[in-house]
Amino acid sequence: MIKPIYGLMAEFDNPTSLVNAARAAREKGYRRLDAYSPFPIEELTDALHLHHNKLPLIVLCGGILGGLTGFLLQYYITVIDFPINIGGRPLDSWPAYIIITFELTILFGAISAVLGLLGLCGLPMPYHPTFNVPRFALASRNRFFLCIEARDPLFDHDQTSAFLETLEPREVSEVAN
C-alpha cells in the first residue's frame, strides 16, 4: 500500500520548543524525522543524533588528490615533457613546486567541500514534499518545524498526530506527498 502522505509536521515558535520536541520524538521511538529551522541549532544536532558526516573525509581525499595533481603535473612537465636546462640546475627542482602544489590542494579541497555538501544534502532538489505545506515558507524566516515521516515504522496518522499535539505546537499539518 502506498502511504498517501509524506508525514506530519508540527510548527513551533522558538528553537527551545523545537529541540524539546525533537528530543521527545526520539524518546518516543520515532527515527524517520527531520527538523527545519531558519538557522543552525547546535542542540538540534544532538537531539537528532546527527553527529557524524563524511564531509571531512571527502575534503581530505580531495585535498590529497589536489596536492598530488599539483606536484605530479609540475614534475611531469618540467622533468619529462618539457625539460629545460638552465645553468645546469636540476630538472626536479621540487622546492619551486611547493606553491602550486599547495594552491591546488586548497582548490581541490574547497571544491570537494562544496560538492560534498551538495551531494550529502541531496541538493539541488527543486521539489520536496515539505514545500507543499503553505506555512513551511516561514521555515526560512522565523518558524521551526518538526516533521515525522510516514515511512517511520511507528507512524500512525492518528497516534502521531496526537503525540505532536502534546508537544504544544502552534499547528500540526499534513505534508502531502
Binding site: Y36, I41, L44, A113, V114, L117, C121, P124, S140
Partner: peptide, 24 residues
C-alpha cells in the same frame, strides 16, 4: 537549489563552513 533548512543539512553545512574557512 531547494535548500529547506533541514537539521541534517544544517549539520553538514556547519561542517562545510568550518572546513572551507580552514582552507581559506
Amino acid at each position: 537549489m531547494g535548500w529547506r533548512g533541514s537539521a541534517r543539512h544544517w549539520s553538514i553545512y556547519e561542517t562545510a563552513s568550518l572546513l572551507l574557512a580552514g582552507l581559506a
